[in-house]
């Protein structure tokens, strides 16, 4: 897909999201691709609480996102309405933490929903608390930087793509709002499949990551080109890297120095060069692991 092929119709208005919110952008882009024959589940999150969506939606409870969508899908089937896409959107905390059980259940059963996780790497709506998707080295309000804990969050983040692949679902992918055509190609693939489809889209948060709002897209790009986030796709048992991540891992394109990605973000300002080096090393290892995975599941 090229930029001028992105659907012109917009199913959202301007709501109360912070200026530069990439979560809002993620939903806006997905809905362009899905179109009006969609019903949506949102959950307590920035997107659920602030976005103005001109598509039918229910804001369900935090752990209930997947199961509510599953019920909608079954209900529509029972009523003979088979041309409607049921989509769910939740943040990284709503997906990788409190919503994981319901999502796992749906994916194992193969319930017919498209689940989108917009990942801004912490609980932003409640005020920047760590989630299981928060990367190591991150300052959050519940992993503050202090004498006894100089690095912020310490443990690695949960890799949701791998979690979902373990369910052997028809389609799963990671994407970034900074690469909208790669993202929408994936939404398009996911739209036409039957069963549980999962898209994990990285969405930088100026408020929670502490950078000026105009840099959301630029920082999202650096997340990918530094190797901190990886664009990949699981398609009926085949795994491949896509876009910039493919170029970095397979075509030998040089990684952006990690400092260029972390440096402009206030949530990493406590990290010294040694810590940044460590993060860069982990990113290289992850990328290499994904490259091998792509070979194994080619």
């Amino acid at each position: 897909m090229k930029i001028d092929e992105v659907t012109e119709t917009d199913y959202m208005d301007s709501g109360a999201a912070c200026p530069g919110c990439a979560g809002e952008l993620a939903l806006r882009l997905v809905l362009k691709e899905l179109g009006e024959k969609t019903v949506l589940t949102t959950t307590p999150s920035c997107v659920g609480a602030t976005c103005s969506v001109n598509i039918s939606r229910i804001n369900t409870a935090f752990p209930a996102t997947a199961a509510t969508s599953v019920g909608m899908s079954a209900g529509l089937k029972a009523l003979g309405k088979t041309d409607v896409t049921v989509m769910a959107i939740a943040g990284d905390g709503g997906t990788a933490d409190i919503g994981l059980q319901g999502l796992s259940g749906a994916a194992e059963r193969g319930d017919d929903i498209l689940y989108v996780c917009y990942d801004n790497e912490a609980y932003m709506n409640t005020g920047i608390q760590r989630s299981s998707a928060t990367p190591p080295g991150t300052w959050t309000t519940t992993t503050p930087v202090g004498k006894e804990r100089p690095k912020g969050k310490e443990r690695p983040r949960k890799d949701m793509l791998k979690v979902m692949m373990a369910h052997d679902l028809p389609y799963a992918a990671t994407a970034s709002v900074s690469y909208p055509t790669d993202f929408l190609d994936k939404v398009k693939e996911a739209k036409d499949r039957t069963g549980t489809r999962y898209i994990h889209v990285y969405a930088p948060c100026p408020t929670g990551w502490k950078f000026p709002p105009e840099r959301s897209i630029e920082i999202g790009k650096k997340a990918v080109t530094s190797g901190a986030c990886i664009l990949a796709e699981w398609d009926e048992g085949k795994f491949s890297l896509t876009g910039q991540s493919k170029r970095l891992a397979e075509d030998g394109k040089e990684l952006t120095p990690m400092k260029e990605y972390l440096g402009p973000q206030g949530r990493f300002k406590h990290l010294d060069d040694e810590a940044i080096k460590e993060i860069a090393q982990t990113a290289r290892e992850n990328l290499e692991e994904y490259r091998k995975l792509a070979q194994a599941y080619s």
Partner: peptide, 17 residues
């Protein structure tokens, strides 16, 4: 479903459509 929590959530989704 994989839990009663999801059972009730799915019933809610079904009735919501």
């Amino acid at each position: 479903v994989e839990s009663e929590y999801s059972a009730m959530s799915a019933c809610i989704g079904a009735e919501a459509v």
